[in-house]
């Protein structure tokens, strides 16, 4: 075990939660909300990560990604689809000639508990299959037992295998117990060469929340101020409504600024958010509350 460590930045939990809560109180004008809906869709990683996934289900998801609603013609495509590695080639085929990226989870998603050589091999094959973005998981156990260097080494080793791909590092914040440790994990991932830090796998109960995402935003902000390098943040899991997503955008703008209001630096990982965003879109367009029957039930 090497004795590598990053500087500890303590997080004031009470202040953090109060600050995060303040983002839910903003009054947003209708026109801004509608503009934000476009951004939210453009920042969305449409995700399916189930044991029951099939090629046809992934194709259907890709169809939805390039054209979220057949009825609402002006809705833009989403940022990416996020699938398991065996479906990368299917997704690439289905999304050829579209701006939609193909992201794949690798390194023994969701728990990361496998031999490191196998986890690296998974990344290698996923890159070979054509993935544009790699979502890796860190070894939470290593971090919890104090082996900080291993997190940096793992991220660096994975980044070496996918130099051209966007590397998103999933911290699985729900398992890290404290804000201090979440902050520490984010700094370690950034140190290792992460292009994005991502909150959660979506596979455990506690997923993205405003305070947790705020910790990540503060980490990338401080990294930017210290080094001038840009790292993105992906909030994944638990964001189901447009209203929540608006609150995240407010937080991004007020924490790291306009530059991060861009799919290259901020993403939503979601499977059910799109439905609510489309409902709100239809509501804004038609001037009355909408129904799932109008925009597709899937």
């Amino acid at each position: 075990m090497s004795s590598f460590s990053v500087s500890r930045v303590p997080v004031d939990a009470v202040g953090l939660e109060a600050r995060a809560k303040s983002f839910t109180k903003r009054s947003i004008k209708a026109a801004s909300k509608h503009q934000a809906l476009q951004w939210i869709i453009g920042m969305m990683d449409l995700t399916t990560l189930e044991g029951a996934d099939t090629e046809s289900k992934v194709r259907r998801l890709c169809q939805k990604a390039r054209r979220p609603s057949a009825e609402l013609a002006k809705v833009p495509p989403v940022a990416a689809v996020c699938v398991y590695p065996p479906f990368v080639s299917v997704a690439c085929e289905a999304l050829r000639d579209t701006p939609v990226q193909v992201a794949a989870v690798a390194t023994s998603f969701p728990n990361g508990q496998s031999f490191f050589s196998l986890r690296l091999e998974e990344v290698r094959q996923t890159v070979e299959a054509g993935a544009d973005e790699i979502d890796m998981v860190i070894s939470r156990g290593a971090l919890l037992s104090g082996d900080e260097a291993r997190i940096v080494d793992e991220v660096a080793a994975v980044k070496e295998l996918c130099p051209k791909q966007h590397l998103k590092v999933i911290l699985e914040t729900g398992e890290l117990e404290t804000y201090d440790r979440i902050r520490q994990a984010a700094q370690l991932a950034i140190e290792g060469g992460a292009d994005f830090v991502k909150t959660s796998t979506g596979k455990i109960g506690l997923a993205a929340t405003l305070p947790i995402t705020l910790v990540l935003l503060e980490a990338v902000r401080d990294h930017f101020l210290a080094t001038g390098k840009l790292v993105g943040v992906k909030a994944a899991g638990g964001i189901r409504t447009a209203k929540q997503a608006w609150q995240y955008l407010v937080m991004v703008k007020e924490t790291v600024g306009d530059r991060w209001l861009d799919p290259s630096l901020f993403r939503f990982g979601a499977s059910s958010l799109l439905q609510d965003v489309l409902l709100q879109w239809d509501r804004a367009a038609a001037g009355r509350y909408s129904s799932s029957n109008l925009i597709g039930l899937d």
């Binding site: 239809d282 009355r288 509350y289």
Partner: peptide
Amino acid sequence: ETVGSHAD
């Protein structure tokens, strides 16, 4: 008005 127009 909302009762009448609500699509759901």
